[in-house]
Design a protein around this nucleic acid. Structure first.
Lengths: 259, 259
DNA sequence: GACATAAGTTGCTCTATTTGGAACTACTGT
DNA sequence: ACAGTAGTTCCAAATAGAGCAACTTATGTC
């Protein structure tokens, strides 16, 4: 049995429900002598795939494996459908789009779809930003009501730009505004000269929620074009939301546009 | 560099933000010849750690790695605090307790704390059960409002026992009841002769939600003892909920007990 | 605290897995 | 159609991993 297969077999046993694993357990699991089992588990711990359970010689899933779950969020029916919808929007409007998720009080992009315009906004996925200071983040946080937000957000907010919310109350108000209209907008917030329009869709079966957004150079995009991008995104979100059973989009009134 | 270290290095690069990986990327990542890179990625794909991206020769995270992230859910501040709270409840009442989570329309236990009574309910963690037909599942589903539940639940429900809800409307009513009183109860539902009382707590920072429950032999536990278990669990849930910032428990009236 | 047992670690020799160059196939861009 | 790039497979050689034995550490019992 190859080393890769053994690593996989050990990790599989955690998926099957185990929370801890001993060297002796591993002898039975892999049908190898305990010296081999001991060295295999130690090597996996050294690599971050496992760690010692506190106060114990047994092993549990390690930081690398836990982090993998987060990385695995790039792949689900929600992400695939948001990606496909966003690809159509990008094709139609020519600007760059991202599929992003929230992790605590930060957001980060999982997928990027580059636009075709000569003047483009390009940012690598994976870069983390404060959720309240981005359209994407406000679209995602719009899934919480005001009371939950008051519990979740700290008193003092970082303020990466003058356009970002300065207080928790202001952040909550802007999130409530995004909730009411079904999409969020930012300009000169995460980055100067850049505008963003974002929507969020949830998959009630998996419990996931993700955002799709379009970013564009604020100076060259007209009000009519912004309205069109907004319309493309909200129509797309409603369609994906309906497919997945997201009650927010099923219940949302059809015309929710820029005033 | 050992095989385990190489596997870990490849998986780490997905955590760092990459969504796809080619054989050529791997040559650079691991500093090995492309024949070695090709075989390493193929071995990882065969083991389920990676898979081919659709319509591409590039690789992305595979089902085993994605499942691992889910398995990693056993370890978080929510799980640790629920476990500690539940250990105290088990010590006090003597019956077995579980920490469980929902995955779609099913629930499964992540951690078990065995009671001290001679007559015990013992079920291995990891066994999946329909959410609507268990106290645990109804406590977890109580986080959704009725509209969301109507979208989430199928028309036809499996009915593993006569005590389980027979229709979606009945399931929603029982979940609403659990929501109103802050805990859920089941008797003769998942298993004959077994009673369960369950609460749910969420961590708004991580987005996780988990249940803590006590199971007991229904025939030998008095009404007064059931009320005491209920009180221990809801007091414990309120304390953990307050620590984590769960608005449901912060806002909940203090006395929410069995009528 | 003494003792037996179980779990886990490490040294060292052997072997089976892994390596990597070369030759090849498949795909992509012009 | 063709050149260049990406990826695969063969096969002999190399070495990481295997596994026995001896050892250390932890645990349960009296």
């Amino acid at each position: 049995m190859s080393s890769v297969a053994k690593v996989a077999r050990v990790l599989e046993s955690f998926i099957a429900g185990r929370t801890e694993l001993s060297v002796t357990d591993t002898v039975g699991l892999l049908d190898i002598p305990k010296s081999s089992a001991s060295r295999m588990l130690k090597a996996m711990a050294d690599a971050g795939l496992l760690e010692h359970a506190p106060g114990s010689r047994r092993y549990r899933i390690g930081p690398l494996a836990i982090g993998l779950g987060r990385a695995g969020r790039t792949q689900s029916r929600l992400m695939d459908r948001l990606h496909a919808m966003l690809a159509e929007v990008v094709r139609s409007c020519g600007h760059t789009g991202y599929v992003s998720v929230r992790d605590g009080l930060e957001i980060f992009g999982l997928r990027m779809i580059e636009g075709s315009h000569d003047l483009r906004v390009v940012r690598e996925p994976g870069v983390r930003m404060p959720a309240v200071a981005t359209a994407v983040g406000r679209a995602l946080l719009a899934r919480f009501d005001d009371a939950a937000l008051a519990a979740l957000l700290p008193d003092q907010l970082d303020r990466p730009s003058p356009a970002a919310p300065a207080s928790r109350a202001e952040a909550i108000a802007r999130i409530a505004h995004a909730r009411a209209q079904g999409w969020a907008e930012a300009e000169d917030e995460g980055h100067r000269g850049i505008g963003t329009i974002a929507v969020a869709v949830a998959d009630p079966v998996s419990g996931e929620c993700a955002s799709a957004c379009i970013t564009y150079p604020a100076a060259v995009v007209t009000a009519a074009e912004r309205a069109r991008i907004c319309s493309l995104l909200t129509d797309g979100a409603r369609r994906v939301g309906a497919e997945l059973g997201d009650p927010v989009w099923i219940a949302a009134p059809r015309r929710r546009r820029i005033a």
